[in-house]
Design a protein around this nucleic acid. Structure first.
Lengths: 181, 181
DNA sequence: TGCTTAAATGGACAACGTGTCCGCTTAGTG
DNA sequence: CACTAAGCGGACACGTTGTCCATTTAAGCA
């Protein structure tokens, strides 16, 4: 039972933050900017979102949920039914799509160590781990994060912007990783 | 021709910074802390090192140089002479060693996008790329950063500290990646 | 509708870190 | 010893952060 004004402000904040994050690099957007753009006071903003990261996480949430749904119950090769290696390749392709569309948001959600502590990372981790297990790969725990590492947003942005690689080239390189299964 | 007092202060700064970085997380160490610990003024500190990252880079420099030297002119399998896949595995093992000893410093050198812009990353990149070329791997450029991604310090710290994996387990997982050659 | 209450608001405020600036000091040179 | 330019260091101004609390407002109830 969230109060009406609270719900309205939450929506305003997310909308304003999305625009600001799209317009300029995340670390140039201050909490004050977001509060001003949303037309709310600092206190109101901090009440819900203690830092930029939590705002970006909230914004990403729906997109991630959708992919998670397709991983669990979608059609093969993304969903259940296909061989593990193919499912991993499909997962890589889908994640690249997600990064392409929302890399700026992911970068806004405070890159670095915190990435591993989000619920989303836990989900990707569990998914890939289950694929490794299904493929009969020994000692999956050591390998999971190794296979997930190239999906770090910084890596993607570097490959895409600084190196000028295309999405397809990146997906192709990731696909080659599935040989380790 | 660096003045004697300048050289003395540079040494003091690096020594103090090394201690502080070892004692607590990098982002809790302020430039002011370093200046105070080194017994120099803010201006003196900023004259040489405009931010924490540049200090950490300077601290890492010697360790990285040593490994770079061994890659270029050391004994196989790290140095020239061994098959590319074995050299890559040896490189992984050596990097894990470096991370184990100095991860806190690497983390101090401002994690994230900047990592890719350091000279050191360029060196690792060129090395791995040459191994891919030597192995006859097609389209090496897309694959290099994919193979380098699991060596991001955040990933290593997560595997080592949060997951409790051992060095050998991580090295073993990385070694499995060399199959893509 | 009017009353009550607890949640929600927003802006002022203190604390902190950053980076710069400039008068003073000191090393190096002839 | 004197001169000069490089080096020094701390004060300062600025921007950001996170908290606090007096005021407002939504929602439930008589």
């Amino acid at each position: 039972m969230e109060r009406a004004d609270a719900a309205r402000n939450r929506a305003r904040i997310l909308e304003a933050a999305a625009e600001l994050f799209a317009a300029r690099p995340p670390h140039e957007v201050t909490m004050d900017d977001i509060a001003k753009a949303a037309g709310v006071g600092r206190g109101t903003l901090y009440r819900r979102y203690p830092d930029r990261a939590s705002i970006a996480v909230a914004l990403l949430d729906e997109h991630e949920r959708e992919l998670q749904e397709r991983l669990l119950r979608g059609d093969p090769p993304l969903g259940p039914g296909a061989p593990p290696a193919e499912r991993l390749a499909a997962f890589y392709a889908a994640m690249v799509r997600l990064l392409e569309d929302h890399a700026h948001l992911v970068l806004g959600s405070e890159v670095g160590r915190t990435r591993f502590q989000t619920g989303a990372y836990g989900f990707w981790r569990a998914h890939v781990r289950s694929l490794l297990v299904a493929a009969g790969t020994p000692r999956p725990d050591a390998l999971v994060d190794t296979l997930l590492a190239p999906l770090a947003p910084e890596v993607y942005v570097f490959q895409r912007s600084d190196l000028g690689l295309g999405m397809d080239e990146i997906v192709e390189a990731l696909t080659r990783l599935t040989r380790v299964l």
